[in-house]
């Protein structure tokens, strides 16, 4: 899952990014309004954590531009403005959630996760595909009751596939949602990681769960239909 953090205060931006990365998110950051809009517009994020008072361009303007561009990312506004009128303005302006500084990082994390679920229209934090079970809160994966150890990137890929179980997820999508903006990995690494993932979840003759749609991408599901 990929998050953009637009915040001009360095310590806060870096800390949020670090916390989110350690929680398994791919995180891009922007330090001012213009950079934030450019990043947000040029790639598909699941969640954008957006400060309102930004140099260059304020958060509400960025939000309106993004909505006009038809970007579907869930936006979590992060601001020091705490009056009900400010919250209403933010939510009416197209934001999905609102968090007031200072906040507990655990709450920010929980809200970001909830926004991810909302984006993929998944209600429960535990996703089940056939006998595969993803607990997105604890970041654990079990198949047939047996726990499977995954690296954080493998987990991120499986999470993305599980969120859209039964649907084709393109290699670009996977690459975009799992890798950060300034990572120099190219999209071929996706195939390599999918191979690793298959080895772990489909071992010892278990039925296939990740199906390849040649020229399109991958589908997670029982029959691969």
């Amino acid at each position: 899952m990929k998050v953009l953090v637009v915040e001009d205060f360095q310590l806060l931006r870096d800390s949020i990014a670090q916390g989110l990365r350690e929680a398994g998110f791919a995180v891009d950051t922007a330090a001012d309004g213009e950079q934030g809009l450019w990043r947000a517009a040029s790639s598909d994020f699941d969640v954008i954590v957006l400060d309102l008072m930004l140099p260059g361009m304020d958060g509400m303007t960025i939000l309106q531009r993004l909505r006009k561009l038809g970007k579907a990312a869930c936006v979590l506004i992060l601001t020091a403005k705490d009056t009900p009128a400010d919250r209403v303005r933010g939510l009416d302006g197209g934001a999905d959630d609102y968090l007031i500084k200072p906040f507990a990082f655990a709450e920010l994390l929980a809200r970001v996760k909830a926004l991810v679920r909302r984006k993929y229209d998944v209600k429960s934090p535990v996703i089940k595909v056939a006998d595969l079970e993803l607990d997105t809160t604890r970041r654990t994966v079990r198949r047939g009751g047996e726990t499977i150890d995954l690296s954080s990137r493998e987990y991120a890929m499986l999470h993305l596939l599980a969120m859209q179980a039964g649907k084709v997820v393109t290699r670009t999508d996977i690459w975009e949602h799992v890798y950060e903006f300034d990572s120099n990995a190219d999209s071929n690494v996706v195939d390599v990681f999918i191979a690793h993932l298959r080895r772990k979840i489909e071992r010892e003759g278990l039925p296939r769960l990740i199906h390849t749609r040649r020229g399109h991408g991958y589908v997670l599901g029982e029959s691969g239909a």
């Binding site: 205060f9 806060l12 870096d14 800390s15 949020i16 670090q18 601001t79 020091a80 500084k101 200072p102």
Partner: peptide
């Protein structure tokens, strides 16, 4: 007041988040 709140809350949020994230492991 809003500016002062912003100017104080933002660094406070930074401190809090930095320390909280640091303490997670």
């Amino acid at each position: 007041t809003a500016d002062a709140a912003h100017e104080l809350r933002t660094p406070l949020a930074g401190l809090h988040t930095a320390l909280e994230v640091c303490a997670t492991r």
